[in-house]
């Protein structure tokens, strides 16, 4: 059962009021503007044993995403396609308020939002992931772990997922006449086929101010947020209002415009960082 969360961390009211007043004046504690992201650092291939991985630092928020490829049976309605499974966990390392245990509603929501964006856009070309059509196909597991929480977990996770997928290579597969499948993970034959790049840009709202990429303090004063998944061709690949407040129609419209504008730049930034480091 979902219930109203109690305030995550105890922060002095005076500090929160200062944060709100600064946002209303269009300024932020670190000097960046309302529509500026914090510094983004990407470490592709951070986990050598994963089939693809990336560590992402968004300011002080740290997320690691890893991809594992497994041979599985395709879904009956898509017998000639691979499958995509996205999950997320908020690790107890990330915050004193995170408890170990199965993913809570926030982690489930995050994973499902990232999953829907990748799935609906057909970001991964699943039709190229059949091994024995109708019988065996690659299952792409994207697992997101939040290691350190300083706000904006959704965007950091979506960047990490995209980077991890761009870092993933398909191994060599041989199918003999008896239908036995031999996988040689030591030789990588091709990058995971990607149709589209996508990531989320989350717009937070406090009173009538819209801003992006909140740190934890800013996040704790935000009334609500709109998560917008933006594709590399400037379309909207998913939306999720998250948090207890509401937005006017004009705010929704403004938020989507901001997200599309920032999103394409962010996709270019991630792409160039990935190229530079590979």
């Amino acid at each position: 059962m979902s219930h109203t969360p109690s305030t995550d961390m105890v922060t002095p009211k005076l500090k929160l009021m200062t944060v709100v007043n600064m946002l209303k004046k269009g300024t932020r504690s670190t000097g960046r503007g309302l529509l500026d992201f914090r510094q983004i650092e990407i470490v592709p291939g951070y986990v050598p044993n994963a089939d693809g991985s990336a560590l992402v630092r968004l300011g002080n928020t740290v997320v690691v995403a890893g991809v594992k490829l497994e041979i599985g049976s395709p879904y009956p309605d898509t017998p000639n396609e691979g499958a995509l499974v996205v999950s997320a966990e908020f690790m107890p390392t990330a915050s004193p308020t995170f408890e170990p245990g199965p993913p809570d509603e926030n982690a489930i929501e995050l994973a499902r939002v990232v999953d829907r964006a990748l799935r609906e856009l057909k970001a991964i070309d699943l039709s190229k992931l059949a091994i024995v059509p109708g019988r065996k196909a690659w299952v792409v597991y994207v697992d997101i772990y939040v290691l350190d929480h300083d706000g904006n977990l959704v965007d950091a996770s979506s960047i990490a997922s995209l980077a991890a997928l761009m870092n993933t290579y398909l191994p060599k597969v041989e199918v003999d006449e008896a239908g036995n499948i031999k996988v040689d993970k030591s030789s990588k034959v091709a990058p995971l086929p990607i149709n589209h790049k996508v990531l989320t840009v989350t717009i937070s709202k406090v009173e009538n101010v819209l801003f992006v990429d909140p740190d934890l303090e800013e996040e704790s004063v935000a009334e609500t947020k709109l998560i917008v998944a933006v594709s590399d061709d400037g379309r909207i690949a998913g939306l999720q209002k998250s948090g207890s407040g509401g937005l006017t129609e004009a705010e929704v419209s403004a938020a989507v415009d901001i997200a599309i504008k920032i999103g394409s730049g962010l996709i270019d930034l991630v792409t160039s960082k990935m190229l530079k480091q590979s």
Binding site: E120, G234, I236, G238, K241, G246, T248, S253
Partner: peptide, 29 residues
Amino acid sequence: APSLGMVTLLQLNGVLTREEFAEALKLAL
């Protein structure tokens, strides 16, 4: 919440252009 003019739930499962989204929101309202 129509009298408040406030959108309190918004999700999108699928892909829309900016123009389609604007039209879809109007239709929903």
